Computed example of a mutant assay.
Amino acid sequence: MDDDASTPKYSSGSTGFRAQNRFSDPAADMPPEWTAPTPPNGLPLEPIPAVDESDAEDRPPYLDLSTVALLGHPKRAPSQGWRKWLYLASFKLLNVGESPKVIRREALIAQAQQPLRGCHRIAVLSLKGGVGKTTVTATLGATLASVRGDRVIAVDANPDRGTLSEKVPLETPATVRHLLRDAEGIEAYSDVRSYTSQGSSRLEVLASESDPAVSEAFSSDDYTRVLEVLERFYSLVLTDCGTGLMHSAMGAVLARADALIVVSSGSVDGARSASATLDWLDAHGHEDMVRSSIAVINAVRPRSGKVDMTKVVDHFSRRCRAVVEVPFDPHLEEGAEISLERLKPQTREALLELAALLAAGFAGERREPV
């Protein structure tokens, strides 16, 4: 067989293997940006497209990266009652949540914890003695101090022998007179703390003189000087006023008060005396203070059921911003040091409601002395 006829011929001519273009150069098909020289500062960046501000409102907002947004808001386990036992008995599988009573209490606490700028001054007064005015001052102050993180102090401005200092453990024999004497040297909270006594609730009390002859000299100027010292270190100052509206310090108390609490008992004469207190304030240019005041109907003894409390509440609700009824409590009847833990749940709830109503006025404008 002829080798020339059976063996294929490969030549370098125009019809040879290389001329068939069966393979192409890979670099020829690359985009030009792939083969561009690398700049000294790194890879070339894509140009940022222009943003049309006209459709900014139509674009969805950025995802909120808060803990609640990313993890959800877990349902809190119940803290008391049959709901708690059901939750534990089911090995934490059945969670029916908190009861409406607990939810309301937490809402009141949140309201009482409302932030406060500067110092808020509260006057607690009544024309009639024996209605529990000092007790209301101490329990309200203790409630505020227990739920808030700032400093709360109660001042005994009674011209007679005041008993406010008996509501907390006595830590010092110092009184308001000693504070006035050393006022010029008080520069820090630790200085003023040596003149006050503090209870378990963190409420501090500045006592009055035990000698009525000396305390009568507590004048309007004296109260103003005491308040100027306390305003530098305390967020809330409660003043336990005397029963007489004409004594010398009362003018300064009313002139500098941001809030007013009028205390009445559940008796006929107690309600009439509290209403007469409001009448006196109206007649002496304190109409705005009366309208923004809070009336507290304090049950100093068990209810006999003979007084229609609905009508008493209705009377004061027409004159004041709010009315709170504080039920009778055996612990308060003792007249000794007050412990919030020993109060009945109904009493603690009423005091918490009073604290929340008082805190609702924190957002208002600060009242300037008149």
Rank of each mutant, 00 (worst) to 15 (best):
A157S: 11
P61T: 11
P345R: 06
R319K: 12
A142P: 04
T310S: 07
S339D: 14
H178G: 11
S215C: 04
A28H: 11
L180S: 09
E171L: 10
A207W: 01
H178T: 01
S190D: 11
G149S: 15
R232W: 10
D25G: 05
A274R: 05
D4W: 07
Q346C: 02
P31Y: 07
V324H: 01
T172F: 00
V323E: 01
Q111R: 13
D222M: 04
C241E: 00
G305R: 06
A213G: 09
L238R: 00
G141T: 11
D3R: 13
A142I: 01
K311I: 12
A356S: 15
M30Q: 15
P39S: 02
V51A: 12
D308G: 04
R342H: 10
A350Q: 01
P31A: 08
S201I: 11
T239I: 15
S275F: 04
L70I: 15
A276T: 11
K306A: 11
A360F: 00
V152H: 03
W82D: 08
G13W: 06
H331A: 14
L140C: 05
V168E: 04
S79A: 12
A142R: 03
S194Q: 09
S275M: 11
P327E: 08
A259T: 00
T38K: 11
T137E: 01
A274E: 02
